[in-house]
Simulated scan of single mutants.
Amino acid sequence: MNTVRSGGRVERIRAALQSAFAPTALQVIDDSAAHAGHAGAASGRGHFRVEIVAAAFAGMPPLARHRAVYAALGELMTSDIHALSIAAATPDEAARRAPA
């Protein structure tokens, strides 16, 4: 995969999520290389993992958080992303999970 294109995708995903959620922590990981040859990857779209911590998720069940992330990514879901793994938490939840 072209690393410039991949890096551009990560930055577009990051920018969309920053704009929508103003997260306190955000990681966007491109896992596309692990899926090379996968039938779904033939379209040229990638596999990504998002770990996001934002106050905007307070009071939202997991499914609603995922839907909010999909909505924030909008067109990227059809143009750049084939598969997306999401870990979405509030700052309080993230603090409880952090090692002591």
Rank of each mutant, 00 (worst) to 15 (best):
A68R: 06
I81F: 00
V53N: 10
A71V: 09
Y70F: 13
V53C: 06
A56L: 08
V69Y: 04
A71K: 15
A56F: 02
G46S: 11
I81C: 01
L73M: 14
G40M: 04
L76Q: 05
R65N: 02
M77Y: 02
F48K: 05
A71L: 05
A54S: 15
G37S: 12
R65W: 07
I81S: 02
A39I: 07
P62R: 13
A58E: 15
S79Y: 02
H66C: 14
G59D: 07
R49S: 15
V50I: 15
V53M: 11
A55M: 04
A72F: 10
R65K: 09
A41S: 15
R65C: 03
G37K: 14
V53S: 09
G37M: 08
G40F: 01
E51G: 07
A68P: 06
G59V: 12
R65E: 06
T78W: 00
T78L: 01
G44N: 03
G44F: 03
S43C: 08
D80K: 01
A64E: 13
A55I: 03
F57I: 07
G44S: 05
V50F: 08
G74T: 07
I52Y: 02
F48E: 03
R49Q: 13
M77T: 11
A72L: 09
E51F: 05
G40L: 09
G46W: 08
H38F: 01
A55K: 12
